[in-house]
Amino acid sequence: MKNNLLSLLLFLCCAVATQFFSQRVWAQTATATGMTGDQWKAIKAIKIANLDKDTYFKSSGFILDRYEERPAYVFTYSDGVTRKIYLYKVFAAEDTKDLGLLAIYKNEKSGEVKPFVIPGANADRKAWDAYIDELKYVGEKEPGLMSTLTFVLSREMAGLMAGGGAKAEESGDKKKEEYNFCFAADASVTLADGTSKSISDVTPNDVVMSYDAKTKTLVPTNVTRVDTHEGNFTLAGVWLTPMQELTADTRPILTKPMLVEATANHPVLTATGRKPLGNVAAGEILLRYDAATRQVVTYKVVKTESVIRSVNKVYNLATKSGTYLVGDVVVLDK
């Protein structure tokens, strides 16, 4: 009887904490409609390969973004078992509409992972019913799950109510384009045969050129999805020139620097790893395909600009390999 009462109390606390937390978070970015029952099922089915490293990614038409960029909540109970809770905000990839939260429970001893899709305040009743059922029929079967989830949601709610959620409010005010990693319609995508076409003309299943960072070789890859977004988007740019001209010739630069432009947050592959285009500084090294040698060569950034132009429609490709070439420069999906 005592255990049943404790389980009921935890269930009620978790449900109440969830409702308050969702109202506080989604009041900042309220939308006319929220998560549907079908979306709830689709989000629950998403598999995350590495919970500690995968803090932002797109899957099955959704964007998952680690809540406030926080690491996992970690709990070690008297039974010696370490339990973790990971929190992600969930957005619709098509229009970056806020849908809710994904809380993932992990038992480090058993390896058991249980996702809980927490609808936003404006969600469909079916989504809320599904979440409550999960709390009742899944949460009670795993010792320690309900208490850890209740603690995390209650603590986040308390932080928001106390004004400690400034970062969350700032995050809630993000413009849609902050989640849209894209290029203008005329951006030139390098195909697997070395030719190119505008990104606006690329279609799913097209075979484009990709770069394998492990083998440092060019490989073909299939386009799995083409994302398009309409609005007002500012493009940043970097100007590149071949490294060999800078190092092997004492005369002024012979080749006119080439421009690479995209939204400032779109990641490119530099000599030191992944970096948003807007964070790339003069002097850094990017990788570019040389059509004459069919090899990847190094180009040096000689100039950066935070604003090149504005466009009302942008595009991004999702590929099987995670990379493709724009203007023959190696870029990443997101």
Rank of each mutant, 00 (worst) to 15 (best):
K2N: 12
N3C: 08
F11A: 09
F11H: 10
A15P: 02
V16D: 08
Q19I: 11
F21N: 02
W26F: 15
Q28K: 11
A32E: 15
T36N: 07
T36G: 07
D38S: 10
Q39E: 15
K41R: 14
K41H: 09
K44S: 11
I46W: 03
T55I: 14
Y56V: 09
S59K: 14
F62E: 03
F62R: 05
L64R: 01
L64G: 02
L64P: 02
E68R: 15
R70M: 15
R70N: 14
F75S: 11
T76A: 12
Y77P: 01
D79E: 10
G80K: 09
G80F: 07
G80R: 09
V81A: 09
K84V: 05
Y86H: 13
Y88C: 04
A93D: 13
K97D: 10
L99Q: 04
L101Y: 09
L101T: 06
L101G: 06
A103K: 03
A103R: 01
K106N: 05
K106Y: 04
N107L: 08
K114F: 07
I118L: 12
I118V: 15
N122Q: 15
R125I: 15
A127N: 04
Y131H: 13
I132V: 15
E134K: 09
Y137K: 10
V138N: 06
G139W: 00
G139K: 00
K141F: 09
E142L: 13
P143K: 07
P143N: 07
L145D: 00
S147T: 07
S147N: 05
T148F: 02
T148H: 05
F151N: 05
F151M: 07
G159I: 04
A162T: 12
A162S: 13
A162E: 10
G165M: 02
A166R: 12
A166E: 14
K175D: 10
E177C: 07
V189L: 07
T190C: 10
T190E: 04
D193C: 09
K197C: 09
I199V: 13
S200T: 06
T203Q: 15
T203A: 15
T203H: 13
M209D: 04
K216P: 00
D227S: 07
T228P: 00
N232Y: 08
N232H: 11
T234H: 06
A236I: 00
A236D: 01
V238L: 03
L240Y: 01
L240A: 03
M243A: 08
L246G: 11
T250N: 14
R251P: 00
I253R: 12
T255I: 13
K256A: 14
A262Q: 00
T263Q: 03
T263A: 05
A264F: 03
N265M: 10
P267L: 03
G273A: 09
R274G: 02
L277D: 00
L277P: 01
R288G: 03
R288H: 05
Y289E: 02
Y289P: 00
D290P: 01
A291L: 12
Q295N: 11
V297Y: 03
T298S: 13
K300H: 06
E305N: 10
S306C: 05
R309A: 07
R309M: 08
V311I: 07
K313R: 15
N316C: 08
N316Q: 11
L317A: 04
K320M: 08
K320T: 13
T323L: 06
T323N: 06
V330N: 00
K334F: 14
